[in-house]
Design a protein around this nucleic acid. Structure first.
Lengths: 259, 259
DNA sequence: GCATAGTTAATCAGATATGCGCATCATTCG
DNA sequence: CGAATGATGCGCATATCTGATTAACTATGC
């Protein structure tokens, strides 16, 4: 309630911070510190808070506006440097695939890693809505079927009602799904309704649903739900998966593979 | 107050890297290092990360854009063959497109050339069954809808019955078609029945059908017919088009554009 | 088939950024 | 007035990034 104008309130600084990052797209910590007249430590604390509420994205040395990375062909919310976990998750996923299965590969960098491992298995049939996955197989590999639909640039996937017409006609042995967030209460969530619709279509056609999600995805909730955890047959993640979530998944009867 | 004294953030460098590779198609590590002002080791690390997320492909000595790395010999041979004519044909085709049209781009190198010209026209809707066309627009461009279907490696297109479900639901202002051969007697022919089926589906939905074919295609006949010349509204070709065919097309009421 | 040149992966050292604990300062409330 | 609460800044330990060096690998020529 007090109006001491000597030092601006934290809320005011946060607002400025949001605007600065929004305007410049990308800024380093020291620039923000100089602009706001506070120390780098404070800026880091602020950035941590704002990242937790999803208003920006922290990167080494600074911060980025989330819509800036949306404009770029970044199709994963996390930095590409988190690759080793994704690679191990993909390798574990490979063991679930039978030699002549029909499998679905959702969009996301983890499924791209899996796709690369699948190139030698020519007897497989891979259904996907991901342009990146299609590129992986464009030199040869399994039989590939693309769902079609409208291209969503951010995720490099084809989504929307048109997808349904294709997916309706097929049966899938395993659907390997990615997600933005997954939690016990909210299930699996993603940012785009059309994306969620297409994910639902694929999962509805699959005998088994396997969620590929590194541990940072757990407890997160995005905008649109596309499934609940009891739909999941198996989840493959890394050892940093929170213990609480782990127990909840066990209770829900979900096989959990930690890599 | 802006100074370039501080080193740019890694994210900025990645963005430049993506743009450079997409622009040049293929680049050496040392060229990238010089352009970005960092060491070759850093470039290699960046390339590894970007490859892991499928945004480019590494090759010995450098990196390639994904749309060029799928070096299907036949497809690229066709690209190299008569490239200047194809470019001029594409430029002529561009003049037929209205600002908010819904157009179909068939597979083939000429349609890829046209697609490149269409990138600035964000208000267009482009429907295609060509992976190459999809890759052209993957960094932004018109609204893009991919038909889906089974991937035919040789032509890098998606074909077959599944395509029908998607195409059935839409209307196209102009369908820009490629072909293997076209003759007055046999009409337009191609090598693959599934490919032909998909071409028929697209043409059936289009108000106008524009054939993009360099002069070497005339008089040739391939395996499967997918249309007759009286279905064609306009044909765009080069000045070496045989005179006999030219007259026959005129008699059939086909507009002929020679470039 | 071997040798050579060029390229890459692995490793280490230096620089920079980050997270955490603690001290300081301001504000609030008893 | 004094203690409690909370925000801020500083210093240090840790983590991450970058560049250089070297060994292993690959492609090409002979």
């Amino acid at each position: 309630m007090s109006e001491t104008a000597t030092k601006e309130l934290a809320e005011v600084r946060w607002r400025k911070l949001r605007d600065l990052v929004h305007e410049h797209g990308i800024l380093r910590v020291e620039e923000l510190a100089a602009e706001l007249g506070v120390s780098a430590a404070t800026v880091r604390r602020d950035l941590a808070a704002l990242e937790a509420s999803g208003e920006l994205r922290r990167i080494h040395g600074g911060a980025m506006a989330p819509e800036r990375c949306a404009a770029e062909p970044l199709f994963d919310d996390k930095t590409a440097m988190a690759a080793p976990e994704k690679q191990r998750i993909a390798e574990a996923a490979l063991t679930l695939v039978g030699p002549r299965d029909v499998i679905y590969l959702d969009g996301g960098s983890t499924t791209v890693a899996l796709a690369r491992l699948l190139i030698p298995f020519k007897q497989l049939t891979v259904v996907t809505n991901s342009l990146r996955v299609a590129q992986v197989f464009s030199n040869g590999g399994p039989r590939m079927i693309l769902t079609g639909g409208e291209c969503r640039l951010l995720s490099q996937t084809f989504v929307g009602p048109l997808t349904r017409a294709v997916l309706d006609q097929m049966h899938l042995d395993i659907a390997f799904m990615g997600t933005i967030g997954v939690s016990v209460q909210q299930g699996m969530t993603t940012t785009d309704p059309a994306e969620a619709f297409t994910k639902e279509q694929a999962m509805a056609r699959a005998s088994r649903i396997v969620l590929l999600a590194d541990s940072t995805k757990f407890g997160k909730t995005s905008f649109v739900r596309f499934g609940t955890i009891d739909q999941i047959s198996t989840v493959i993640t890394d050892k940093q998966m929170p213990t609480a979530e782990r127990k909840a998944f066990q209770r829900a009867g979900v096989d959990t593979i930690l890599v």
